[in-house]
């Protein structure tokens, strides 16, 4: 079962509809217990960082998210759900989850902001979830971007006047700046990759449990 992180402001409907289309069961998680018990977590965030973090803390879901990700629960962060993985956002000075080191900064570009529309993802690092993403156009809508301290987590970049990080991947954690649930068949492809990856990870974890002495 995939848990969708609900902190009260994000619109989960479109991600849930996309998972329904892929015939994957999902549950809206509003408590730390629901996150702790999830096979996989999708965090589709919209809006500003500070109110989202306040809402997560209010529901005690911040700690549960950190624990689940550290335990290796397959995780997909979308847009703000990617940005909140970092330490701090310049958008409103919010302290974020700090699972990845680095900050969230306003995109320094001569092009128009917000960056709204379809743009391609390049320099894609190999990962089961990002398979087939290279060169694909995905739908973006944002003005802030992540700046990871450790460049090895970067799994994709996009150019809007200047290059910025549009995907990260570390082990079972993946985050994307674009909206796969709004990116047509390419987006559904990435969500399908994530679902298959989550299933494989669960099978592997089950096998590891059985092989214990």
């Amino acid at each position: 079962m995939i848990a969708l992180v609900d902190y009260g402001a994000g619109n989960l409907r479109s991600v849930r509809n996309a998972l329904d289309t892929l015939e994957v069961e999902s549950v809206i998680a509003t408590t730390p217990q629901e996150l702790a018990g999830a096979d996989a977590i999708v965090f589709p965030g919209v809006g500003a960082a500070a109110p989202a973090m306040a809402a997560l803390r209010g529901r005690r879901m911040d700690r549960a998210l950190i624990d689940a990700i550290r335990r290796g629960t397959p995780f997909l962060g979308i847009c703000l759900g990617l940005q909140l993985l970092f330490e701090r956002s310049a958008e409103d000075g919010a302290t974020c989850l700090g699972i990845l080191s680095g900050t969230v900064d306003r995109l320094e570009t001569a092009e128009k902001l917000p960056h709204v529309g379809w743009n391609t993802v390049d320099a894609v690092a190999p990962h089961p979830v990002t398979a087939g993403l290279e060169g694909k156009a995905m739908y973006f809508t944002h003005s802030y971007v992540v700046a990871p301290q450790d460049r090895s987590v970067v799994a994709g970049q996009t150019i809007h006047g200047v290059p910025f990080v549009s995907a990260v991947a570390v082990d079972t954690l993946v985050g994307v700046q674009f909206h796969p649930e709004r990116s047509g068949s390419a987006g559904l492809g990435l969500l399908g990759n994530f679902v298959r990856f989550a299933n494989q990870e669960r099978a592997r974890a089950a096998q590891a449990d059985h092989s214990l002495p």
Partner: peptide
């Protein structure tokens, strides 16, 4: 919203934030 996976905008006579909430929640 159940069968279309590209962004869509809805307009026409929207007068307050409650109407906006209803339409965004609908997808």
């Amino acid at each position: 919203a159940r069968s279309v996976f590209i962004p869509f905008t809805v307009g026409g006579g929207i007068r307050d934030v409650d109407e906006i909430r209803t339409l965004l929640r609908a997808g």
